[in-house]
Design a protein around this nucleic acid. Structure first.
Ligand SMILES: [Zn+2]
Ligand SMILES: [Zn+2]
Ligand SMILES: [Zn+2]
Ligand SMILES: [Zn+2]
Lengths: 130, 130
DNA sequence: CTAGGTCACCGTGACCATC
DNA sequence: GATGGTCACGGTGACCTAG
């Protein structure tokens, strides 16, 4: 899941090496949320960078999602479908035991901006205000 | 579905007017793809700005999506679920009759860049190469 | 009117610095 | 090791102009 470096002209970078810093990833500890490769434990459980960042953002911004499909329990969450339903992705983060207490608050300007903007999000997204 | 202007500090813009240029939208001609308000016909059918732009981008970049859910015909496409499945959204664009011939090619640098980058997209997205 | 085009905005996740 | 943080990147859609 390591992405190529787009800042390098791809047509020239034919010698693209799929594991530049890929030794960061663990072979036998997949993400407990989506099954992708993890780079270790995050907030209590093995998680990929994506799920870890997603969990952090959700907690920081106090986001509550609603499953658009109305799935009571869970839309399937795997490395293919992972971004399809944020509500169920976050629920699964909690289900596998990721701990929100492990996410420390932050007071960066960017976060404040996002919190402010949050109040003006269109009402049709999957985000519900606290 | 008109979004507020985030460049204005939302906390100050309490007089936010939901129809700044909203007279652009038609009242009785919803988007035939997702049911959102349309601003007229696009590529042959009444379509909202979102579906029109989505259709244009897909044709320009010759994108072929695959339904992650493997729905043979169609995931439901409406203003709530519209972005959940691009494969089925595009299929519905064609089904209601949007015409790809109405999308003219463009040769901007940005498009070429996107076409190049396309070849390096991770294999786990819903995009399949032509 | 419907094309084409723009761009502010957002979510994502790979990567890095810090402890 | 696991935090916090960064930021390049791509997608989106509201809005604009051109014809
Ligand atoms: Zn994951
Ligand atoms: Zn769900
Ligand atoms: Zn639409
Ligand atoms: Zn689908």
């Amino acid at each position: 899941m390591e992405a190529p470096n787009y800042s390098v002209l791809p047509i020239i970078d034919l010698e693209y090496n799929p594991s530049p810093a890929g030794d960061r990833l663990l072979l036998n500890s997949p993400c407990e949320v989506c099954g992708d490769h993890s780079s270790g434990k995050h907030y209590g459980n093995y998680a990929c960078d994506g799920c870890a960042a997603f969990f952090k953002r959700s907690i920081r911004l106090d986001r509550h999602y609603v499953c658009k499909r109305g799935n009571p329990g869970a839309c399937p969450i795997d490395k293919v479908l992972q971004n399809q339903c944020r509500a169920c992705r976050l629920r699964k983060c909690f289900e596998v035991g990721m701990k929100q207490e492990a996410v420390h608050p932050s007071l960066s300007i960017a976060d404040v901006d996002q919190l402010l903007a949050l109040k003006w999000l269109p009402s049709l997204t999957d985000i519900v205000l606290p």
